[in-house]
């Protein structure tokens, strides 16, 4: 594997996380529990989609041959999409939306902080911009974790359920394969071992303060890095890519 290939793959992964989670949040437009929260979720969706574009543009530039960010988004089949499975989990209810955002944003914050010191200048640039957004996403989700944890019996029960259901998707966030190793040695990729050591106590502490039982660290789902997903992803793509695939000659 050349450094160039690894970096291309790395950008796709970062981009796919942002793209797919952003898409999930975009689905919530006009479905917020109240108007202000509706706008808040859309803002996060916009941050993530904008960031996906930056990662994919970088990947497209690395690939060359006239590739574009949109080409990577709208013409890649499901087995070549590499987001973490957590990001594609559905908007079951508001508790799932917040739990997913908390678990991912807390991870993403450490990841982006690390990337701010990467040896790759373009990643540093993207990470510096994205970090500001992610800090806000995390603050927004954390506030809700307390409101739901300490609000009513129902909110506590729903959030606990969401945390229990989504926890098995968190192990994958810290998986390292050849791509990661290669780029870690080159001083480009984030160090997921260190991030895990930061992420775990932060999340566990917050859950405890918000009155939740700690979800158990048993079986962890895996597959995203290899393009093996839950059944949800195919449906997301079939909507997302529908126009481009139905009218391959058209530009929009």
């Amino acid at each position: 594997m050349t450094k160039q290939d690894a970096l291309f793959q790395y950008c796709l992964r970062l981009g796919d996380d942002a793209l797919i989670l952003g898409h999930r949040l975009a689905e919530l437009c006009s479905r917020g529990p109240f108007l202000e929260e509706d706008l808040a979720q859309t803002n996060i969706a916009l941050d993530l989609t904008g960031r996906a574009q930056l990662y994919f543009q970088y990947a497209a530039d690395l690939e060359g041959r006239g590739q574009t960010a949109d080409g990577l988004v709208y013409r890649r089949p499901e087995r070549q999409i590499y987001n973490h499975l957590l990001c594609e989990q559905p908007n079951t209810d508001f508790a799932y939306v917040i739990a997913r955002q908390l678990l991912f944003s807390a991870f993403d914050r450490f990841l982006l902080e690390d990337l701010c010191t990467s040896k790759d200048e373009r990643l540093v640039e993207i990470a510096a911009k994205a970090l500001k957004e992610t800090r806000y996403h995390l603050a927004h989700a954390s506030d809700w974790v307390y409101r739901l944890g300490l609000g009513t019996g129902e909110s506590h029960r729903r959030m606990q359920q969401a945390l229990n259901d989504l926890w098995p998707y968190t192990g994958e966030l810290f998986e390292i394969d050849d791509v990661g190793l290669h780029l870690l040695e080159a001083g480009i990729a984030a160090d997921l071992h260190t991030i895990r050591a930061l992420w775990t106590p932060e999340i566990r502490q917050m859950l405890q303060k918000a009155g939740f039982e700690q979800p158990a660290d048993d079986y962890m789902h895996t597959g995203g890095l290899k393009g093996i997903h839950s059944e949800h992803l195919g449906h997301m793509l079939s909507e997302m890519q529908y126009l481009v695939r139905a009218y391959p000659e058209a530009t929009w």
């Binding site: 479905r31 917020g32 529990p33 929260e37 739901l148 609000g151 009513t152 129902e154």
Partner: peptide, 15 residues
């Protein structure tokens, strides 16, 4: 949407 959001608004108000 309004009904599905009721428990969220209640939780926020209760908190």
């Amino acid at each position: 949407v309004h009904e599905e959001g009721a428990w969220v608004r209640e939780a926020a108000a209760a908190y």
